[in-house]
C-alpha cells in the first residue's frame, strides 16, 4: 500500500506533463524531421528555438518578451529553453536535442563562442538555419549575428562614462559576474584597452566576481569601498551587480562621493537612479533585441534574407542596417535620471 502511495507523486507529475503537452498536433508527429519550412500544400508554421545563456535571468526574460511579440506578429512557433546556469556544455545539449526534435531556426545567445559552435555547425549540417544574438558564435557556425553592441562599443561606452564622471582621473573598481563568463571577459579586455589608450590617469584597483547574485555583489562592493578608500567609482558589468553596488554605496553613506555605473536593466535600477546613487545605466533595448532576432530568424528561414544583404526590415520595428553578417541594433543606450521612467523592462 505504501509503495502504491509513494508511486502517486510520480504518476501524478507525469500526468501533469502529459496534460501540459498539447495532444500531438498532426504535423508534429514523430516521423520526418522537419527541416524545411514549407514541405506541403499547407504552410506549416515556422518553429524558431530561442536559446538564452541561462534561464531565470531578467535580461533574457526581457529579450523573450520581445521574441514573443515578434512571434505573434509573424505567426510562428517559438520555443524558449536554456540551461539553468550559464553552462556551455548544457547549451550544446539543448541545441543537439533541438536538432533531434527538428526546428527551422535556432537563435542562440552563446555563453562560449567555441563551445557552442560545435553544436551550431551540426545544426546547420542538418539544414537548420542559425542566427545568434547577444553574444556571437564563430562566424561559420551561423548566418547572421544580431549585434546589439560590440564588446568594444560596450567597453568604450562604460570607460568613457567613467572618465566623464571622474573627470579623467581617479581609481575605480569593477564587479563582474564570474571570472569565467565569456562576454564579461571580452568587456573587461575592451575596458582595459580603452583605459590604457585614452585615460592614463584612470586606474582600476579591484576586480571582483559576484556569482551573478545581488547580495554577493553588495558584500563585494562594501569590501571594495572599505579596502580602497580612494575608489571613486564602481563599475558593475553584470545586471544584478548594479543595484547591489548602489545599495553598498548608499549604506556606506557615500552617495555622490562614489559614483555607480553599470550594465543593467532599467527596472532593477530605477530606484537608485532616481535617488541619485547610480548615475548611468548602460544597455541596449533588450526587448527590441529579442524582437529583431526573431524577425531576422524568420526572414532567413523564409529565404527573404540572404547573405550579402545590407538591410533587413523587422515589421513595425523598422529597418536595420547589416554590416557584413552583423545585423546592427544600434548604439548602446544610456539610461539616466531623465529618461529611465520611459522604459519598462
Amino acid at each position: 500500500m505504501k509503495r502504491l502511495l509513494s508511486l502517486g507523486p510520480v504518476l501524478l507529475s507525469l500526468a501533469v506533463v502529459l496534460s501540459g503537452c498539447k495532444p500531438s498536433a498532426p504535423d508534429s508527429g514523430s516521423t520526418a524531421p522537419a527541416a524545411g519550412s514549407t514541405s506541403g500544400g499547407v504552410p506549416k508554421p515556422l518553429t524558431v528555438a530561442f536559446l538564452p545563456k541561462s534561464k531565470g535571468n531578467a535580461y533574457f526574460i526581457a529579450a523573450r518578451q520581445g521574441a514573443e511579440q515578434a512571434a505573434k506578429e509573424l505567426g510562428i512557433k517559438l520555443l524558449f529553453d536554456g540551461p539553468t546556469e550559464p553552462d556551455p556544455a548544457k547549451q550544446n545539449e539543448i541545441v543537439e536535442t533541438w536538432i533531434t526534435r527538428g526546428v527551422d531556426v535556432i537563435a542562440a545567445a552563446c555563453e562560449n563562442r567555441e563551445g557552442i559552435s560545435t553544436a551550431l555547425r551540426k545544426a546547420q549540417a542538418h539544414g537548420i538555419k542559425v542566427v545568434t544574438f547577444d553574444a556571437d558564435a564563430l562566424p561559420e557556425a551561423r548566418s547572421f549575428f544580431v549585434n546589439q553592441a560590440t564588446p568594444e562599443g560596450i567597453g568604450n561606452a562604460l570607460t568613457d562614462e567613467a572618465a566623464r564622471l571622474l573627470q579623467g582621473s581617479g581609481e575605480y573598481a569593477i564587479i563582474t559576474a564570474s571570472l569565467t563568463a565569456g562576454n564579461m571577459i571580452e568587456w573587461q579586455k575592451a575596458i582595459e584597452k580603452r583605459n590604457a589608450e585614452k585615460y592614463p590617469n584612470l586606474k582600476r584597483v579591484a576586480l571582483r566576481p559576484c556569482d551573478d547574485l545581488k547580495d554577493k555583489a553588495f558584500a563585494e562592493a562594501t569590501a571594495i569601498l572599505n579596502a580602497n578608500p580612494n575608489v571613486k567609482l564602481l563599475m558593475a558589468i553584470c545586471s544584478p551587480a548594479v543595484p547591489g553596488a548602489a545599495e553598498a554605496v548608499k549604506q556606506a553613506g557615500r552617495v555622490g562621493q562614489v559614483k555607480v555605473i553599470g550594465l543593467g536593466l532599467p527596472n532593477e535600477n530605477k530606484r537608485y537612479v532616481k535617488e541619485g546613487v547610480t548615475d548611468t545605466v548602460i544597455l541596449w533595448r533588450v526587448v527590441d533585441l529579442g524582437r529583431l532576432t526573431i524577425h531576422v530568424a524568420a526572414a532567413l528561414a523564409r529565404g527573404e534574407l540572404k547573405p550579402g544583404a545590407t538591410e533587413v526590415t523587422a515589421g513595425a520595428l523598422g529597418t536595420f542596417k547589416i554590416s557584413g553578417d552583423n545585423v546592427l541594433l544600434g548604439e548602446p543606450f544610456k539610461f539616466t535620471k531623465d529618461n529611465i521612467d520611459q522604459f519598462d523592462f
Binding site: 531565470g56 545581488k214 547580495d215 553588495f218 544584478p240 530606484r271
Partner: peptide, 12 residues
C-alpha cells in the same frame, strides 16, 4: 538589509 529581493538569493 536590501531594498529588493533577488530570487537567486541563498544560492550556495
Amino acid at each position: 538589509r536590501f531594498a529588493d529581493v533577488d530570487p537567486k538569493t541563498g544560492t550556495g
